[in-house]
């Protein structure tokens, strides 16, 4: 991926298997978020290919990528600020509902039943992340950590097969981080999905991820099981002198 003359993600290749929880780590500016933006169609890669379920998803727009079963959260929280917590989640159900424009106005057919079903599922998801008591608040009035969790709930509500989490634990304290990682692991089992998550802090991902790959200056420098990454020369070098210890 190039922006003007700047190559910011270069020949990164990896595979996320079904039902795998993979961590992507690397220093700030390594190109991790850019990888997410390429996968989800926010940026079109200038070269290379992205294949999901055997199909190239490069030509697709973000909403089409979402329809294929990939959802994401944003590092710089992008909740819908004039919507309540539950309506933030509600929006994710739109792509799968039967009651579109006119049947919603005329409240025809399955409309009422569908709305009730969605209300129920929103409550279930919010409950799981301990956000139910805040469901009628504006999303922007939630504490920071809860906003991050709401981003995950909103992404999950699109019923993805692959979930991309961009620094979901950013800004949380160490115990909150561990709790969240355990929750993410549980979510993976419960919803039977694959997860690719970005995390700045290596210690946090080591515990939960089945596989980790490391980006530095837009290049992949390592890819393997947590134990392998921990002992990898290049990774140690990249992180040496950094405040992050393995």
């Amino acid at each position: 991926m190039r922006f003007g003359g700047l190559t910011c993600v270069d020949k990164v290749s990896t595979v996320v298997e079904n039902h795998e929880l993979v961590g992507m780590i690397g220093p700030n500016g390594a190109g991790k978020t850019t990888v997410f933006n390429m996968i989800t169609g926010v940026y079109d890669p200038t070269e290379g290919d992205i294949v999901f379920n055997g199909e190239s998803i490069v030509p697709y727009k973000p909403y089409e990528v979402s329809a294929k079963g990939i959802s994401r959260t944003f590092q710089n929280i992008r909740l819908f600020k004039s919507l309540s917590v539950k309506d933030n989640v509600r929006v994710s159900f739109i792509k799968n509902i039967k009651s579109k424009y006119f049947s919603s106005i005329l409240q025809l057919g399955k409309f009422s039943r569908e709305e009730k079903e969605i209300d129920k599922r929103i409550d279930e998801l919010l409950e799981m992340f301990d956000l139910l008591h805040e469901k009628d608040e504006y999303a922007s009035s939630l504490p920071y950590g809860d906003q991050r969790k709401l981003e995950i709930v909103r992404a999950l509500a699109t019923s993805p097969k692959l979930l991309l989490l961009d620094e979901p634990a950013a800004g949380m304290n160490p115990t909150e981080k561990v709790d969240l990682m355990n929750l993410i692991k549980k979510i993976k089992e419960l919803f039977d999905i694959s997860i690719l998550l970005i995390e700045h802090d290596m210690k946090v991902v080591m515990g939960v991820c089945e596989r980790i790959f490391v980006l530095e200056y837009g290049k992949k420098i390592a890819d393997g099981k947590p134990e392998e990454i921990r002992n990898d020369e290049k990774v140690i070098q990249a992180y040496l002198g950094d405040t992050h210890h393995i």
């Binding site: 926010v42 979402s66 944003f74 799968n96």
Partner: peptide, 11 residues
């Protein structure tokens, strides 16, 4: 509110 977020949620 946010076109990029909306698109990413399938809108």
């Amino acid at each position: 509110d946010d076109e990029i977020a909306a698109e990413s949620m399938g809108i």
